[in-house]
């Protein structure tokens, strides 16, 4: 296995048609300029404060709770989205109903709307005297200006990522496979859990990762509905903006670096998980 190990031969041109070196070179330059360089700047900036200064910024209760809120609510929102996003994708792929194409187009709306517009609209609805707010108030639930409001906004912006990740995979999934399960005696629920879900799990994970990543960095739609009360409903991106307004560039960069590190680790884990699943049931 030594000579044939693809890890040891990663620079071998894979095709006689050529174009490998220009393509790789272009990709590396592009990535360096637009991704790596800004990220490197971000990673270097905070150290102006010294290690103890960075630690002081990051361990401040306000920073910790902002990071907790950002990642926690992004996680909850992504979890909720994969449940309802999967159901929505399923309905759009498997059933025919009037207005299906309009509904299909509506899914993309959160992509297209300026996030500030979304934020204002959601605040109007969920404020104590808004349509939804009035329904929730009798139960003692307050959505606007609480972490719940943050989650609602993040669900909204993340939803299309989940639907659009799962939809094509479901379309590819041959209904014959489900029919085969039925002829073998499987009840509908077993077919879903043992045949359909395993087939779309990689897509669900992709949708989750995309929705989660989008939600972690979301700013515009959240700041209106969140109310931005420090240590309660203040998200990390807003805290960065506040630090910038105070000309504390190194402090802002420190929080940014923390977000970057956490996001990178989480996305890396998700990717590894997905690769593991794909390797098992490698599709033809």
């Amino acid at each position: 296995m030594t000579a044939a190990n693809p890890r040891l031969r990663r620079f071998v041109e894979p095709s006689a048609l050529g174009g490998f070196w220009p393509a790789l070179g272009f990709t590396l330059c592009y990535l360096s300029f637009f991704v790596l360089l800004p990220l490197a700047a971000l990673a270097l900036r905070p150290w102006e404060l010294g290690a103890s200064g960075v630690w002081r910024v990051l361990s401040a209760p306000r920073t910790v709770s902002a990071l907790e809120l950002s990642f926690g609510s992004a996680f909850i929102a992504a979890c909720i989205n994969i449940v309802f996003g999967t159901i929505a994708a399923w309905s759009l792929v498997r059933y025919e109903f009037p207005g299906k194409r309009i509904l299909d187009a509506l899914v993309d709306l959160p992509f297209a709307l300026p996030t500030a517009v979304v934020g204002i609209a959601l605040t109007a609805i969920y404020a104590p005297h808004g349509i939804m707010g009035e329904l929730l108030t009798p139960f003692g639930i307050r959505a606007a200006y609480t972490p719940m409001g943050v989650i609602i906004a993040l669900i909204f912006v993340g939803f299309p990522f989940v639907v659009r990740s799962i939809q094509p995979v479901l379309e590819d999934l041959d209904p014959e496979v489900e029919e085969a399960a039925a002829t073998l005696g499987a009840a509908r629920w077993r077919t879903l859990t043992h045949v359909v879900f395993p087939a779309i799990t990689p897509a669900i994970l992709t949708g989750f990762a995309l929705a989660f990543a989008r939600a972690v960095g979301e700013y515009g739609s959240v700041i209106f509905i969140a109310g931005n009360i420090p240590q309660i409903s203040e998200i990390a991106p807003l805290l960065i903006v506040i630090r910038l307004d105070e000309f504390d560039y190194a402090g802002a960069a420190a929080i940014g670096m923390a977000m970057l590190s956490i996001s990178f680790v989480l996305l890396f884990v998700l990717n590894a998980l997905q690769a593991g699943i794909l390797r098992r049931g490698a599709p033809h």
């Binding site: 041959d174 014959e176 496979v177 029919e179 085969a180 399960a181 002829t183 043992h194 045949v195 395993p198 087939a199 699943i277 098992r280 049931g281 599709p283 033809h284």
Partner: peptide
């Protein structure tokens, strides 16, 4: 009733 599909319809992840 055992049914064998034309394109087999095997479960790819199993």
């Amino acid at each position: 009733i055992g049914l064998v599909f034309q394109h087999y319809a095997l479960f790819r992840h199993m």
